[in-house]
Write a protein that binds this DNA or RNA. Structure first.
Length: 198
DNA sequence: GTCGAGATTATCT
DNA sequence: GATAATCTCGACC
């Protein structure tokens, strides 16, 4: 697999990234959860509203890193995919540190367990040391490297829970994750215990 | 473990 | 001035 593998719709690239390794310095992350963003189809995407200076990277060539600030405090990392002109990307939501745990944990002192080191989009970037200045980095020649030489892994896919309402479901949050992995986001549909009504 | 509210800043209208 | 692809902390079960 190489850069060409990323020149496909985000919904097809997303499962390819599951189980892939992202190498940043001495830290190696195994991707366990991603989310596909098709800019011209998903209203939730930054690019849906048109190209701006911030998301211009997402309009560029596949195989580049799209990093952006969110909520002022956090950085999220995406892998740009699809052919040029298609503002699609895959958001890295969660991962598992398989090497360089020390370096990752050093950056995230608030985190206790190794599992929590990269459980979450913003946490992931902190653990890897990805900054806003890394936006546009080539994932095949830059300091941040994406390795797609892994074996295919089983994965699950599903829309956001609770949005299955008829007519009102304009949301298309294509989420892909590796089932059974502890690093996958815990906050999903969680059925309310038996507390009072919501 | 699960639920609810606050924090904080770059970017866009 | 309003918004946002989130995280953390405290409280409850």
């Amino acid at each position: 697999m190489d850069r060409g593998s990323l020149a496909a719709p985000a919904t097809e690239v997303a499962p390819l990234l599951l189980g892939a390794h992202l190498v940043v310095g001495e830290v190696v992350l195994r991707i366990t959860e991603v989310e596909a963003y098709l800019g011209d189809t998903d209203p939730g995407s930054h690019s849906f509203r048109g190209q701006t200076k911030r998301n211009s990277t997402m309009f560029g060539d596949a195989g580049h890193l799209y990093a952006y600030f969110t909520y002022g405090m956090h950085v999220c990392a995406n892998v740009v995919c699809g052919p040029p002109g298609s503002p699609s990307a895959v958001l890295l939501r969660a991962g598992e540190i398989v090497a360089g745990v020390d370096a990752a944990r050093r950056r995230r002192t608030t985190t206790k367990s190794d599992v929590d080191l990269a459980r979450g989009p913003a946490r992931l970037t902190v653990a890897l040391g990805i900054q806003l200045s890394d936006d546009g980095t080539d994932l095949f020649s830059g300091p941040i490297r994406l390795r797609l030489d892994h074996e295919p892994v089983p994965f699950l896919q599903g829309p956001r829970t609770g949005v299955s309402g008829p007519g009102g479901s304009v949301d298309y949050p294509w989420r892909f994750w590796i089932p059974g992995n502890p690093t996958v986001s815990p906050y999903k549909a969680s059925a309310p215990k038996r507390r009072a009504v919501v």
